[in-house]
Amino acid sequence: MALYRAGEQEKAFSALVQSYKERMYWHIRRFVCSHEDTDDLLQDTFIKIWNAMDGFREDSRLFTWIYRIATNEALNFIRKKKIRGLLTMEPLDNVLYRQIDEDVYFNGNELQRELHKAIQKLPQKQKLVFNLRYFDELSYNEISEILDTSPGSLKASYHHAYIKIKAELEKKF
């Protein structure tokens, strides 16, 4: 942001993209389960960030602001996909499971596959909290800044999500 305020906007944006592209990629990928969709959403996220940088008031940290934009992009995408699923009569869960099973970039084992499928079964909020806490290892305070929810409520959401996923995995392994 210092570079940006000093008028070096292109350099600032390049530095921002360099710092956050992988982190944001995996954050989005855990929601949409497809490289192509993730790529589109990631590009849209950074374009939105670029367009909104003038208005960034620095009352929150840059990384929580970026996470929030990426999260909203992913959630809007999932919402639209759900509506399209009503027309094709295929529930969103089935679409996402199929994408996980057929993903050509999948290089994990069965346990990892079942974990990602179990995550897709969670309600959106629990999924978000679980991903940010389990994979990104953010603190509850950091997640609270991103999601604008109290840390106490986040701890409860994470606990429920954790128990559900653990039970799913222990049924099979």
Partner: peptide
């Protein structure tokens, strides 16, 4: 199982070759 299986924290996906390098 979630705490003990270390591989679970890793993302089990690759990306196309050079994806991140060419992203910008």
């Amino acid at each position: 199982i979630l705490a003990n299986a270390k591989e679970l924290k890793q993302m089990p996906y690759s990306t196309p070759a050079g994806y991140f390098e060419n992203f910008a």
